[in-house]
């Protein structure tokens, strides 16, 4: 496998989908000549033209709603929302129309739509450009939510999302764009089902569950824990909805201890959901309380001093997991 950045891997994923399927088209602000705010669509306008790499006015509610209409009409739109924070302008369209159409109207309706969006903090962009809002969407029945942590997953899961007949929110962490790692040259010719977690690292003492950039932090924390003699198992859930409970439970049955890492705010976060499901179904295997490392219930500040204090850190993960093992 070649080494690509997350950004390059996503660009390849989009390019392959555009080549493979004439009904795929891209829609979003500044995705053409500008190449997208983070450069993911750079070069695609030149290959596919302004019809299929379509720059929009600043009208998130409108063009997301239009993508839903286009998907219902048989196209496969891939929308870029420049920052995840702005998706709130289109929340209605996604929650009230895209997510419900299939369930309410039944066959033959499908809404094969992908919303790609950069999420997360760490770059000093401030309160309205740094949020991790995936938990809001994971609780809307009918929406799939994908949040890759590596260039390889970025490419293959994006391919799977575009082939999926359902609306998919595809969360791209801003720090993933520059993360380098192996990525397949070809995407699989068959659709990978969404909803499979990945065991990133094996370990017997404690399970660390994470997604998106937090998987990378959990991996680093596991390395530090190993140096102190604690073997952590790291699980990347990859898709919040549908959630692969089995992989998580199997791990907890082995380790008896669970720490969940979430970049978003604590209250009503997805860590709470994962933790509760383990409680419901694997309670007997637990050797101690559940722990979570999250952002506290505050907006993300622009100031580095406050942003760093708010976001989960490797150190906080190490401390939480180590405390659990020593309890």
């Amino acid at each position: 496998m070649r080494i690509l950045s997350g950004c390059e891997a996503l660009r390849e994923g989009l390019r392959d989908a555009l080549r493979r399927d004439k009904t795929v088209f891209l829609l979003g602000e500044d995705i053409g000549a500008y190449g997208g705010a983070f450069g993911v669509t750079r070069g695609l306008l030149a290959e596919f033209g302004p019809d299929r790499v379509r720059d929009t006015p600043i009208s998130e509610a409108g063009f997301t709603g239009m993508a839903i209409g286009a998907a219902l009409a048989g196209s496969r739109p891939v929308v870029e929302i420049m920052f995840m924070d702005f998706i709130l302008l289109a929340f209605d369209q996604l929650a009230n129309m895209a997510a419900k159409a299939r369930y309410v109207f039944g066959a033959p309706w499908t809404c094969p739509l992908v919303i790609r969006t950069p999420a997360g903090g760490g770059r000093g962009y401030g309160p309205t450009h740094s949020q991790s809002l995936e938990a809001l969407f994971a609780r809307v029945p009918g929406l799939k939510v994908v949040a890759p942590s590596t260039p390889a997953d970025a490419k293959t899961l994006l391919d799977a999302a575009i082939r999926d007949p359902n609306p998919v929110l595809f969360v791209e962490h801003k720090l993933l764009y520059s993360l380098r790692g192996p990525a397949p040259a070809r995407t699989p010719s068959r659709r990978e089902p969404l909803g499979k977690a990945r065991v990133v690292r094996r370990g017997r003492d404690v399970t660390l569950v994470a997604w998106s950039w937090m998987t990378e932090l959990a991996r680093r924390a596991a390395r530090e824990l190993a140096a102190t003699g604690i073997e952590a198992e790291v699980i990347d859930v990859r898709t919040l909805a549908p959630l692969d409970e089995e992989t998580i439970q199997a791990s907890v049955r082995k380790t008896g201890r669970l720490t969940i890492v979430e970049e978003g705010c604590r209250t009503g976060g997805f860590a709470a959901e994962i933790g509760f499901r383990v409680f419901e179904h694997a309670f007997d295997s637990l050797d101690g309380p559940l722990r979570r490392v999250t952002c506290p219930d505050v907006p993300i500040s622009a100031a580095p001093a406050l942003e760093h204090a708010a976001l989960p850190s490797v150190r906080a993960i190490v401390q939480a997991a180590a405390a659990l093992v020593r309890e």
Partner: peptide, 28 residues
């Protein structure tokens, strides 16, 4: 990103106000 900033560093370039002047602030 300093404490003496209009929003105490919380807002950054796109989020500051000065209510006494009627400046209701920028918006991200």
């Amino acid at each position: 990103g300093k404490a003496a900033g209009y929003s105490g560093g919380r807002g950054g370039s796109q989020l500051m106000t000065d209510p006494a002047l009627g400046y209701w602030g920028s918006n991200g």
